[in-house]
């Protein structure tokens, strides 16, 4: 079956693992399923291999063991159809293009028609109105990251991969983005993978949080987030939300303690 880029795909990882040249294990063989149309967060300590999993799903990194299939096909297939977008940890904006130019580049690369009004709307959505003709060098780190998010959304991807997209964004803007952005991909029907180390962000944005152990990454817990959508600003103060955040934190510390015991046993 070929991936149909008009519908959000299901992503399946079968004993997906990565060992770097030189023998450093980044990801233990892991089974994962990202359900179609859902947002799944990967949470884990820094350097645990979250981003490596994301890069393997995007087809940018070759797995050492196992494989990724997207609607039954290898990632190369959805790449070929330009059906996915990645918001990279480093905004990776081309310095010689304006914010608008960078967003339009994604459309050009994906061989989509460039719709100026739609690009303007995206720029507005990430709070960069008035900065469309500014070059990245004149923007703050957070603004650059927002431009990168806008670029990732521009091609209306059915598979959206977000690698710590809000790392440099200030707290107020981040809260705003966490409210606004999911509406876009929910409305379109998008399978989203969010890599983050912020537990509240993960709970706020996702339908499911997968907690990873320290390197090499292993799944420690798979927690459903049955909170109503659309998520609203007051949600973070509800007991349900707080309990879920506590669950994720507990799983994170459990994972860290297990890793310590493994090291001690060796």
């Amino acid at each position: 079956m070929r991936p149909d880029v008009t519908h959000p795909p299901t992503v399946t990882c079968d004993s997906l693992g990565k060992t770097w040249k030189g023998g450093l294990a980044a990801v233990s063989p892991t089974d994962l399923v990202l359900h179609a149309g859902q947002t799944t967060a990967l949470v884990g300590p820094s350097g645990c291999g979250k981003s490596t999993i994301l890069r393997m799903v995007a087809g940018l990194e070759t797995p050492s063991t196992g494989c990724v299939t997207i609607d039954g096909a290898p990632p190369a297939e959805i790449l070929r159809r330009a059906g996915l977008s990645v918001a990279f940890q480093d905004p990776s904006l081309l310095p010689w293009r304006t914010v608008r130019g960078n967003i339009e580049l994604a459309l050009t690369l994906a061989r989509h028609p460039v719709d100026r009004a739609a690009v303007d709307q995206l720029i507005m959505l990430v709070g960069l109105d008035g900065f469309g003709d500014t070059r990245p060098a004149e923007l703050s780190g957070g603004m650059r990251q927002r431009a990168a998010i806008a670029r990732a959304l521009a091609t209306e991807p059915r598979l959206l991969l977000l690698d710590e997209p809000f790392g440099a964004v200030d707290e107020l803007t981040r809260q705003q983005l966490v409210q606004d952005l999911p509406r876009i991909w929910e409305a379109r029907g998008t399978t989203t993978l969010l890599v983050t180390h912020s537990v509240t962000e993960a709970v706020m944005l996702s339908d499911r949080v997968i907690v990873l152990s320290p390197r090499p990454a292993k799944v420690v817990a798979d927690i459903d987030i049955p909170l109503p959508r659309p998520r609203f600003p007051g949600l973070a103060r509800t007991p349900e939300f707080v309990t879920l955040v506590d669950d994720v934190f507990a799983a994170l510390s459990h994972g860290a303690a297990m890793a310590d015991r493994t090291i001690a046993a060796q």
Binding site: L79, D90, S92, A106, L109
Partner: peptide, 26 residues
């Protein structure tokens, strides 16, 4: 050019020629 610029080009399913045209030359 940073590796992530080339990743960007690849993530839209484009090859070395697009990387040359959109990134390397500039």
């Amino acid at each position: 050019a940073p590796a992530s610029w080339f990743d960007l080009v690849r993530s839209y399913g484009r090859g070395p020629l697009a990387a040359l045209g959109y990134i390397r030359l500039m």
